[in-house]
Simulated scan of single mutants.
Amino acid sequence: MRLFLDCEFTELSQQAKLISLALVAEDDREFYVELLDAWREEDCSDFVREIVLPQLWGGEYAMPVIEARAALLRFLATYEEELEIVTDAPAYDWELFCELAYHDGKWPQNVRNFPIDATTLTAKNDGEELPHHALLDARIITSMFS
């Protein structure tokens, strides 16, 4: 089972901090979370402040890292089959996913420990322009490849 990953983060650098993370599975199940305590507005680039932050949904999706990690691990555990994570930004999205998924020295048993780079796959369509919202972007990426 492939899960398409997209993240929003503070800046395009190795110091990037996770703001939001989304997974959309080939079976149409979705996971979306926004982190409350992993970043500050001062950490964000101008682009992120202007484009990404105004699109955050808040409410039930916004939670501390500890709760977000638990929610992610619960979601991943609902699958019995091996999960392949597909991302178009392995240098950022995959690394941030790993930071959230890797906990207490353990990796989720049913998740492959390396990503599939979406840019190496053949797209069914060109998709839409990504709006820079993790869940909406993950839905578009999923539609391009599944």
Rank of each mutant, 00 (worst) to 15 (best):
residue 93 D to C: 07
residue 49 R to D: 01
residue 13 S to L: 03
residue 32 Y to D: 04
residue 91 A to C: 11
residue 108 P to N: 08
residue 9 F to A: 02
residue 81 E to H: 08
residue 93 D to T: 04
residue 20 S to F: 03
residue 74 R to V: 10
residue 112 R to N: 07
residue 116 I to H: 01
residue 51 I to G: 00
residue 65 V to M: 08
residue 29 R to I: 05
residue 117 D to H: 12
residue 136 L to P: 02
residue 127 G to I: 01
residue 58 G to I: 09
residue 127 G to R: 00
residue 76 L to R: 04
residue 116 I to F: 03
residue 28 D to A: 14
residue 11 E to C: 08
residue 104 D to Y: 11
residue 15 Q to H: 15
residue 52 V to W: 00
residue 141 I to K: 06
residue 135 L to S: 06
residue 11 E to R: 13
residue 104 D to F: 09
residue 63 M to P: 03
residue 61 Y to M: 13
residue 21 L to K: 05
residue 132 H to T: 14
residue 58 G to K: 10
residue 13 S to M: 09
residue 139 R to T: 01
residue 81 E to R: 10
residue 16 A to F: 07
residue 120 T to V: 14
residue 122 T to M: 10
residue 70 A to D: 15
residue 95 E to Y: 05
residue 135 L to P: 03
residue 91 A to E: 15
residue 19 I to R: 05
residue 117 D to Q: 02
residue 94 W to K: 01
residue 91 A to I: 07
residue 103 H to F: 12
residue 16 A to Q: 08
residue 80 E to Q: 14
residue 132 H to A: 12
residue 71 A to E: 10
residue 115 P to E: 06
residue 14 Q to D: 15
residue 110 N to D: 03
residue 33 V to N: 01
residue 33 V to F: 02
residue 12 L to R: 14
residue 142 T to K: 13
residue 120 T to L: 15
residue 33 V to H: 02
residue 127 G to S: 07
residue 46 D to Q: 14
residue 17 K to L: 11
residue 145 F to V: 11
residue 42 E to P: 00
residue 43 D to H: 15
residue 17 K to E: 08
residue 21 L to R: 04
residue 93 D to V: 01
residue 89 A to G: 07
residue 123 A to C: 12
residue 80 E to T: 10
residue 131 P to H: 11
residue 107 W to D: 06
residue 85 I to L: 05
residue 117 D to V: 12
residue 97 F to N: 00
residue 136 L to H: 12
residue 145 F to S: 09
residue 115 P to S: 10
residue 101 A to S: 01
residue 142 T to A: 14
residue 119 T to F: 09
residue 112 R to P: 01
residue 61 Y to G: 00
residue 23 L to A: 10
residue 27 D to R: 12
residue 51 I to A: 07
residue 56 L to H: 04
residue 78 T to V: 04
residue 12 L to M: 14
residue 78 T to Q: 15
residue 9 F to P: 00
residue 145 F to E: 04
residue 36 L to T: 06
residue 9 F to T: 02
residue 117 D to C: 11
residue 31 F to R: 02
residue 124 K to G: 03
residue 104 D to E: 15
residue 39 W to F: 14
residue 82 E to L: 10
